[in-house]
């Protein structure tokens, strides 16, 4: 079976699973809002696309190697307890707090933090509502009270005119504020930072910001329309908002948003690196100094061979160029050029 066929199959499996969950969660579509069907189909397409791309990505030799090793190291019985604690710690520090991005710069960290939490909150509200997994009903005999249902199961009641009700029903508004703050900061950076300006690409860097901004603004306009303008142009705004959201969902597998699904690989890499540091270190064939974990060097040698690189050195005791440390590689570059000139002079 080819990689492509496998990716298509996995895509179909996840898409079918989501469709089944929608049917189950909405109680055979009883709580499914037909007006949101376009969002649902866009979500199903995004699921297929993301799974397809993820599977193809995992088939690349280096990714496959890290995927396998990451899980092996993480699930190692000897270190599982410590790994779970470490996972929890990293989840909060690196993912929830974006510590590693704040280290690149305060504003940069804040930008990403606002964008990330804005989109996460919006996603956590939108998807369950669209799929019919969450719905609200007034409690019989208590018209001022709502009962929330999750997957058709009662999840508690709350007064409509309460702080909880206000916060919950305006969740997408708060998310929009977070996203818009992040979008503005990101655009500011792309306008004033020469480095970012030189490297940025429209599809990769600008379009995602425009989409997030468009979703937030059109979403807020809907709130403004029904709250203060007697639903002026509401239908038009609803269609406009749907277009921005659906385009973003369709774009998810292709552009920068894919990093949302790719980036957690960082966790596996962390465990692999820690295991490497605990183990034997590779020593350079030239200077005999340790330079990297030996298993990592071995794995990389295999990956290079799988990719068709031939760094083998059959006429030298080192056997493979991967056994030479980066520092010696740089020195060799100078020595080789110097030797060429010495040969030319003699």
């Amino acid at each position: 079976m080819t990689d492509r066929t496998q990716a298509i199959l996995w895509g179909l499996v996840t898409t079918a699973s989501l469709a089944a969950l929608i049917v189950v969660g909405s109680r055979s579509l009883a709580h499914f809002d037909a007006a949101l069907v376009s969002y649902t189909f866009a979500s199903l397409f995004a699921t297929f696309g993301i799974t397809y791309r993820y599977t193809m990505w995992l088939r690349r030799p280096p990714t496959q190697m890290y995927w396998r090793r990451g899980w092996q190291v993480f699930a190692s019985p000897r270190h599982l307890g410590r790994n779970l604690l470490q996972l929890l710690r990293r989840f909060f520090l690196e993912f929830a707090a974006n510590r590693f991005i704040f280290r690149r710069g305060g504003l940069r960290g804040l930008t990403h933090w606002l964008l990330m939490w804005g989109t996460l909150v919006a996603g956590a509200i939108t998807f369950p509502l669209v799929f019919g997994w969450i719905h609200f009903e007034t409690v019989p005999g208590h018209l001022d009270t709502y009962r929330a249902y999750f997957f058709g199961v009662s999840a508690g009641t709350f007064p409509i005119e309460s702080a909880i009700g206000f916060i919950a029903f305006h969740g997408l508004v708060w998310a929009s504020f977070l996203v818009l703050g992040g979008v503005m900061l990101a655009f500011r950076r792309r306008m004033v930072d020469h480095g970012a300006a030189a490297l940025q690409q429209f599809g990769e860097d600008i379009l995602p910001l425009l989409l997030l901004g468009a979703i937030s603004i059109t979403g807020l306009m809907l709130t403004v329309s029904y709250s203060w303008m007697k639903a002026y142009a509401y239908d038009f705004l609803a269609i406009l908002h749907a277009i921005t959201v659906i385009f973003t969902l369709l774009w998810l597998p292709f552009g920068k948003f894919f990093h949302i699904f790719q980036r957690p690989a960082q966790l596996g890499v962390g465990f692999y690196k820690e295991a490497g540091e605990r183990g034997e270190q590779a020593r350079c064939a030239r200077c005999e100094q340790p330079y990297a974990p030996l298993p990592m060097v071995r794995d990389l040698t295999i990956v290079e061979q799988q990719l068709g690189f031939t760094y083998e050195m059959p006429r030298h005791a080192a056997g493979h160029y991967q056994r030479v440390c980066p520092k010696c590689r740089r020195a060799l570059f100078g020595l080789a050029q110097g030797a060429a000139w010495s040969g030319a002079r003699s």
């Binding site: 280096p62 890290y66 990093h259 790719q262 980036r263 690989a265 960082q266 890499v269 692999y272 690196k273 330079y291 990297a292 990592m296 060097v297 990389l300 990956v303 290079e304 760094y311 160029y321 991967q322 440390c325 980066p326 520092k327 010696c328 590689r329 740089r330 570059f333």
Partner: peptide
């Protein structure tokens, strides 16, 4: 995208 694995560091032939 970068997950800071360090593969590039020890793979680059020029270091």
């Amino acid at each position: 995208r970068c997950i800071a694995c360090g593969n590039c560091v020890i793979a680059c032939p020029f270091g």
